[in-house]
Amino acid sequence: MAEQRARLDLAAARHAVEVALEAARRAGNRVSVAVVDTRGHDILVVRDDGAAWFTAGVARAKAATAALVGIPTTAYSGLADAHPALAELIDAQTRQSLTTLPGGLPVVVDGEVVGGLGVSGAQPEQDVEYAQAAVAAG
């Protein structure tokens, strides 16, 4: 019998998005939230009422970066700064829009990266806070 791998499903993505949106709303912010699979492909992308038009694409890039690289986007920033050639290689191999902007986190289940979550539309530290709340809500 094949081993069943952990995965991120639509129900979990919806829950995470709602947690992030609610955290942002409590602070008076309107953001976009993206949840992607391990390959950086969309599971769910939501732009809250009043969030800037471009935030959905930024949230998607943050989520994809975290999923594909397996680390928060803030850590990818350090990696990209320290090793620009490696960052260029990762970008070329993934064929995704990767970013070093704060607010992208890998989603990990049983020690395995199963996707990524990105938040965009508030201040950088707030995007990170909302993403952490969503990932922690599991």
Rank of each mutant, 00 (worst) to 15 (best):
A2I: 14
A2G: 11
E3R: 11
Q4G: 14
R5M: 14
L8D: 03
L10K: 06
A11N: 10
A12F: 00
A12N: 05
A13S: 13
A13D: 05
H15T: 14
A16F: 04
A23K: 01
A23N: 01
A23W: 01
R25A: 14
R26W: 11
A27S: 11
A27P: 00
A27R: 07
V31N: 09
A34F: 08
V35R: 04
V36Q: 07
D37N: 13
R39I: 12
R39W: 07
R39G: 14
L44H: 01
L44T: 04
V46S: 14
R47A: 12
D48T: 05
G50N: 06
A52H: 03
A61T: 05
T65H: 12
V69E: 08
P72A: 06
Y76S: 02
G78C: 04
D81K: 13
A85M: 09
A87K: 05
E88S: 11
L89W: 13
L89S: 15
A92R: 13
T94M: 11
R95Q: 15
R95T: 14
S97N: 12
T99H: 10
P106L: 08
V114Y: 06
G116I: 03
L117T: 03
L117C: 05
G118C: 09
Q123A: 15
P124Q: 11
E129D: 12
A133S: 10
G138M: 11
